Structures are given as C-alpha cells and as structure tokens.
Amino acid sequence: MRAGNNLIGFLNFLTFLLSIPILGGGIWLSSRANNTDCLKFLQWPLIIIGVSIMVVSLAGLAGACYRNTFLMYLYLWAMFFIIAALVGFIIFAYAVTDKGSGQPVMNRVYLEYYLGDYSGWLKDRVASESYWSKISSCIRDSRACKRIRRNVGGFPEAPEMFYIRKLSPIESGCCKPPTSCGFAYNNETFWTDGGGLAGNDPDCQRWSNDQSQLCYDCDSCKAGVLASLKKSWRKVSVINIVMLIILVIVYVVACAAFRHNKRMDNDEPYGQTRMEKERPSRIHF
C-alpha cells in the first residue's frame, strides 16, 4: 500500500515538473505578443493549462502523502479534463495555422507574404478592421521596423545587402512595400517610385514613407502577423505534444496505482492489515 502511494506521489511530482515547460511556453507566447506578434489573447489557454496542472499535481501529491481518497479522485478526474483540454488546444493551434506561408521572390532572400494565402478563423480575426487597429498600433509601438535600419559608414545599407537579408514576417510584410510594386530602395523603410508602373497590388497604394505609417495598413502586414503566429505556435505545439505523451503515460500509471491501492484496502477489513490477518493467533491454555 505504501509503495503504491509513493509511486503516485512521485508521479504527481513529475507532473508538477512537466507543467513548467507548458507554462513556460505560454509565457514565451506572451512575451512574443508584447514584442512582435501582438495578439495577446492567444497565450492564455496555455498558461491556464500549465497553472491547472501545477495545482492539480499538488492536490494529488497531498492525497498520496496523506492517503486522502477524495483528493486522489479529484486529481484523476481533473487530470483527465486537463489532458483533454491540452489535446483540444493542440488541435486548435494546428487547425488555425494550417494554411499560408511566405512566398520566395526572385533575387531576394527574404520572403513575401500575401493575405490571400491564409484562411479561416484566425485570418478573419486578424484582418477585421476593429481588431487590426489594435494589432497595427502594437506593431508600431514595438518599433520592429526601426530595428531593421542599418548604417554602413554613416550611410544606409546598400540595396544589394538588404536584398540578401533574412527578414522576419513582420519586417517583410509591414516595414517595406511588396516587391511587386517596383519601388526603388533608398533605405530599409524609405522607398520611392521607380519610374515605372506600380504593381496591381492594393498595398502599393497603401505604402507610405511616413515612418509612423509605412505598410501597417497593408494586407502584407496582416499576412506577416499570421506567418509570425504560425511560426510561434508550431514551436510551442512541438513541446506540447511531447508533454501530452508524457502526461498520458503518467496518468495511466497513476490510475493503475490508485486501483491497486483500492484493491489492497478492500482486502484489509476493519482496518486490519494483511500482516495482522496472516499472523497466526496465539493458543491460550
């Protein structure tokens, strides 16, 4: 019986440790939201799941140490719903970031991003006028575009050097006009009419050399945000899948240990231990 409780206690301590990477993933998404992604509601489900695993693990640990059946029942049921919630979050994360990716452009290392490549709930959420005003304001305040400015010997970086840079989706979509517009490079965030016809992309008309505007209202900027979210969520989802597999294994073992403890309790009537039950009675004369 004691060995079963020790096993359950160890498994709960292990699940407590496993909650740390899940909570860390949510906090990392939160830091990304504050710096670049700017969608601050997306990290909360992961943070809630991580905190819930911590609390439930402590309840299970207490139940194992004090042999409290109610806490053990609470732990097993709560872990079942937490695992189901984690499965749902992983499926949701992959579903809303399934489509869309950057498109290569000739003579450029960085990728171009097009809103039409994306679809679904997340695209509609990001592209909505009311929500995009908050996102674009966040990107502007993050100064992501200001950070891509480079000077070489006191002069702007040469276009040949800029074209071979690996820009982030936000930098490519929001800080410069689409390549199809045919604008001439002056520096990373200042482009002028190249003398030819501008492309048919509506973003060509939305681009502004005003450093407070740039391409923050462009569809390419919205696509860049979606691409950045997809990249962030996929990284976190890999960790979540590994944690989910371990949690399921721990949960199955904990259920088996709990059933074993109950069976041992049922074999010990009136609080009599198995050793006492098997001890031969003394013969009195």
Rank of each mutant, 00 (worst) to 15 (best):
I170S: 04
W77G: 15
E160C: 09
I135D: 00
G154P: 03
G153F: 01
G88Q: 03
G116M: 13
I91L: 14
P104A: 07
F41W: 11
A84W: 01
S119P: 07
V96M: 03
S57G: 06
F89P: 04
Y110G: 06
L167M: 06
R165S: 07
C181Q: 00
N107I: 05
I90K: 08
Y131T: 11
Y110M: 09
G50K: 01
R147D: 08
R150S: 14
I170F: 02
L86C: 09
K134R: 15
Y114L: 04
F81N: 05
I83M: 02
I82W: 02
E171S: 07
V56L: 10
L71A: 02
K176H: 11
D98A: 15
M161D: 14
R125W: 10
E171F: 00
A59S: 15
L86P: 04
Y114W: 03
R140D: 14
L76H: 09
R149L: 12
C174A: 00
Y110S: 14
Q43T: 10
Y94A: 13
K166G: 07
S130Y: 09
S101A: 10
L122F: 03
I91W: 08
M106T: 15
E160S: 15
G116P: 02
I90H: 03
Q103L: 09
R140Y: 12
R140A: 12
L46E: 06
A59Q: 14
A158C: 14
V126F: 03
E112Y: 02
M72S: 12
T97V: 06
L46P: 05
N107E: 13
G120W: 02
L86F: 03
V96F: 03
W121R: 14
I170T: 03
Q43R: 10
Q103M: 08
A84K: 03
V105T: 13
K166S: 11
G102F: 05
M72E: 13
K134C: 11
T97Q: 01
R165V: 02
W77T: 14
S180N: 07
E112F: 01
W44D: 08
R125K: 14
T69A: 15
I135H: 02
E112M: 05
R143M: 09
Y113Q: 01
I47N: 09
L74Y: 10
S57W: 00
P169A: 02
M79R: 00
